[in-house]
């Protein structure tokens, strides 16, 4: 294969890996603090993207013409809104179900996901059809032979990686992060330390949901298209990535996200027939991995949680 093509595939794989990782980190954080799988997580991403799109439309309507400024506002508003929504869902739906069988939470969030998704289709203007998301970053690029590095892609990768590093720092280095890890390891003892358990859960859900919105914004900037059901596959992939990495393990979720993107790339390159089978291939490998190592490739011991 041509080296330029490989480089192109690598950028593509990194971008997707980044997006999957950001979604997977949410799943793993939620599982950490509450031992729940929140199946509506992918649809929160969709809501983040539609929030971003609406804010974009609003800003252009009032005549703001600086694309980069628009993008910054759009991303921040989407993250704040979805973060808030995530915390609200935790308060209203998920914490009250604590103590009920985990299956209930799973069902509730599955239904919530459907509600979120369908409400966009039904209530967003022309919500059933995909929409075009504009390129808000300058279209500078540089070519080396067959390989063209687009400036916007590089910037998105960089910002995304910084976000992952930031999340790691918050979890590992701050008092809040310490509280999140304490709650993940032993909720009751964390309470006895004076930690406000509910507050930690709200904040964790806010962080995880805001990350999904952020991932969504990167995704639409990359593909320039949004639709009401885009979160479905992204949610399933993020979930698989978290599972492969070992639920509750943040490093695992990040590794899992990039691994999934790599599998897709391999699938697309190795399977001679339609590259549409790349997802089938990637999910197939994930199934095998989970069957072989049910606790995830980073082999969660209880002590490694979050």
């Amino acid at each position: 294969m041509d080296i330029g093509l490989i480089a192109q595939q690598t950028v593509n794989g990194l971008m997707l890996g980044l997006i999957y990782s950001l979604v997977a980190v949410g799943f793993t954080l939620f599982f950490g603090v509450l031992d729940v799988i929140k199946f509506s997580h992918g649809d929160m991403l969709t809501w983040g993207v539609f929030t971003a799109f609406s804010v974009y439309l609003g800003l252009t309507l009032i005549g703001l013409a600086a694309p980069v400024l628009i993008l910054v506002i759009v991303a921040l508003v989407a993250m704040a809104a979805i973060g808030f929504l995530g915390a609200a869902i935790a308060k209203v739906l998920i914490i009250p179900l604590k103590g009920a069988p985990p299956l209930n939470t799973l069902l509730i969030t599955l239904m919530l996901g459907t509600v979120l998704r369908e409400s966009i289709r039904l209530f967003y203007p022309d919500g059933a059809n995909p929409k075009h998301f504009p390129a808000l970053l300058p279209d500078w690029s540089h070519s080396w032979g067959h390989f063209t590095l687009r400036f916007d892609n590089a910037l998105m990768l960089l910002t995304g990686l910084l976000m992952i590093v930031l999340v790691q720092l918050v979890i590992k280095r701050t008092k809040l992060g310490m509280a999140i890890r304490a709650v993940s390891q032993d909720e009751e003892t964390a309470r006895v330390m004076g930690i406000n358990f509910n507050l930690v859960v709200y904040v964790t859900f806010a962080i995880g949901s805001a990350l999904a919105a952020f991932a969504g914004v990167i995704y639409v900037l990359y593909y320039n298209e949004l639709s009401f059901n885009m979160g479905l596959l992204l949610g399933a992939i993020g979930f698989s990535a978290a599972a492969v990495g070992g639920f509750g393990n943040i490093y695992g979720a990040i590794v899992g996200g990039f691994l999934f993107a790599m599998l897709q790339s391999i699938g697309a390159a190795a399977l001679p027939f339609a590259s549409a089978y790349k997802d089938v291939f990637a999910f197939g490998v994930v199934i095998v991995l989970i069957a072989v190592k049910p606790t995830g490739i980073l082999g969660e011991k209880e002590t490694e949680r979050v």
Binding site: K175, M178, R181, Q185, V192, M193, G194, I195
Partner: peptide, 24 residues
């Protein structure tokens, strides 16, 4: 309180465990 069975946070360092004791 010093709970029954110690209940240290196994995945946190000694220092982090102590810090959590002074969380307030």
């Amino acid at each position: 309180s010093i709970p029954e069975g110690r209940k240290v946070f196994p995945g946190l360092t000694v220092e982090e465990n102590l810090r959590l004791g002074g969380y307030q």
